[in-house]
Design a protein around this nucleic acid. Sequence first.
DNA 1: AGCACGCCGACT
DNA 2: GTCGGCGTGCTC
Length: 718
Amino acid sequence: VARVARVEVLTTARALRGPFDYNLPDELSASVGVGSTVVVPFGRRELVGVVVGLAEASAIAPERLLEPRRATGPGVPAELIELSDWVAREYCSTPARALALMLPPGAGARSRLVARLSAGGRRALEDPGARLGAAQRALLERLRTAGELPAAASGSGHAVLRRLETRGLIELERRIAPRRPSHVAVGVLRGPPAALSPGQREALSAVTGAVAAARHERFLLHGVTGSGKTEIYLQAAAATLERGRGVIVLVPEIGLTPQTVARFTDRFGDTVGVLHSRLSNGERHDEWLRLRRGEARVCIGPRSAVFAPLGELGLVVVDEEHDPSYKHEGDPRYDARRVAEHRAQRAGAVLLAGSATPRPESYVALCRLRLPDRVDGSPLPPVDVLDMRGAAGPLHPRTAEALASCARRGGKAIVLLNRRGWSNFLSCRSCGRVWGCPQCDVALVLHRAEGALSCHHCGHREPVPGRCGDCGSVSVARHGLGTERLEHELAAALGGPSCPVFRLDADVAAGRERAAAVLRSFERAPSGVLVGTQMVGKGHDFDDVELAVVLDADATLRFPDFRSEERTFALIAQLAGRAGRGPRSDGRVLVQTLAPEAPSIAAAARHDSDSFLAAELARRAALGYPPYADLIRIVCSSARDDAAMPAARALRERLEIRDAAVLGPAPLFRLRGRGRAQVVVKAREREAAVAGVGAAVAELAAARAHREVAWSVDVDPA
DNA sequence: AGCACGCCGACT
DNA sequence: GTCGGCGTGCTC
């Protein structure tokens, strides 16, 4: 009989090594099993924990074991406990952090302490005789101006906060992630299930064959934009539901893919549970519960939906599998595509990844299904590469002419520039000073409409300078072109009632519903130009865009990253796929670049993903990059700028992994006021390398010498 | 990670 | 004395 529950308590601490054992009294043993969530006494606190195992006895003396206070909520399926264990090990994280991903929204460890001034505190600030230390006074002052502050941003330690709380001068409240407004769907092309082309039928039958046999297989649906991939997802999902099994559909950032989501909800109604961050906490929790109870059998959502509480999984779809948003940028740094593969394999389910521009990894590893043609029969638009070396302005004469002609004829165009803001950086014309971020070693970007310079890494903002802080000169040069200025210049050149200019980038999208509103306006407008960052190339299908332009197409190539070729190819190919669709089949694409002969740009111009992938794979093989090796990146960072490098050096010396190259340590630019250094491991034997790095980091992170250093392990860095 | 405890210096 | 700023140790 199970007398002992093994519990992982939900805390983010790396130093804490669970699981911890608790006695299970009779009244709990009936309701508590693997996957149950429980509230347990832990030290001097009470924490939520997850039961990860049951046992008859513990290695700890029975009299030292405590009992869970109570069970809470429906818990998670046991299958997800196993998955969390795999995620924790695969990404060198902790069981508790991995478990937090599986829990219903809001139940995880993600909460924060918020401080607020009380009436007593307000009086104390005005009373000169009040006993207040310097730190206490400073905190109270900050609270008076800010209203309320998260404890982490209060500038004071917990000791100060707690003492002020016991004296009644402040109020402390633990709060879960803030509520967000709900999401509105836009630009939906509704319609009955389409008849399939022969190519679609063939691809679908391969997938449904594997589903019917409950055989784990992995497919790559490689088809251009508009080739009918979504219809195959829908019909494969329907076939899976008929077999009584569940479906997970992963999409990139959901705000940008409302069309895919709407097609699923249209086809399957309440059977679909939608999980995404723009639902309110309550709504998200309700959707999660519907999935957990089996009331919804299809889950659609962004990367975190790969952890949906669905039993009897039969199919996992990964739409736009090349999209970088599938990589999670917090600990654990999981890759939803790899998690999807693992989960599907464990469940005997089928993995169906789809893209017009698949990653080389998927191209090699998955069973390929080709959809070479657009469903509407329209050809892919011709792509012209324009050499910008020696060009005078931001637009090539042919680009300017094409845009003007499009505006004259009342057509629609999309212009992509992957750079936000007005201009890149500012410098003083007399002394050469460049305005940089005080927290990060990068230049600040001018956002003219807000009258601010902004750091795109940490969010630091300062007013636009009137004069140089070093020499006092009032002559400040603005360099580079961003979307804000491009919008302004195009509006001046073409704009007017007949040719409105719209802009879509992260600055616009920051107002949540604004992104959808911009897309809706552009879609409804009979003519106009949409200017934006890569967001304009995602998700949305407009059936009347005749001209697509990419500016500075080689910008992504200038990043020292082994994926830069792949990214550049995808950026151009994805945008090209959005031109000349529907009735307007006379679309064209212009690509401005300083590197017209770059293989990724030349191949994208020919719509030739097969030869691009072949060449890229050969390059990866020669250089020892994925899929022919696995990369692990470890970043050390510290508020003390001289602490990161010694820690990285110590890691390098500690790492002994067979059949792997260890590169570094290399210094990185300062970020959010923290000095950083990295070590990269290129491994032929993935498991050994992950285990080796995990052990080394665990050991060094616990060492006193590196107490102030934060360690971040990124397996399969993006 | 919290949270408490214990030590030390500054101010009443 | 007391308060506030650290450094250290523990959590079934």
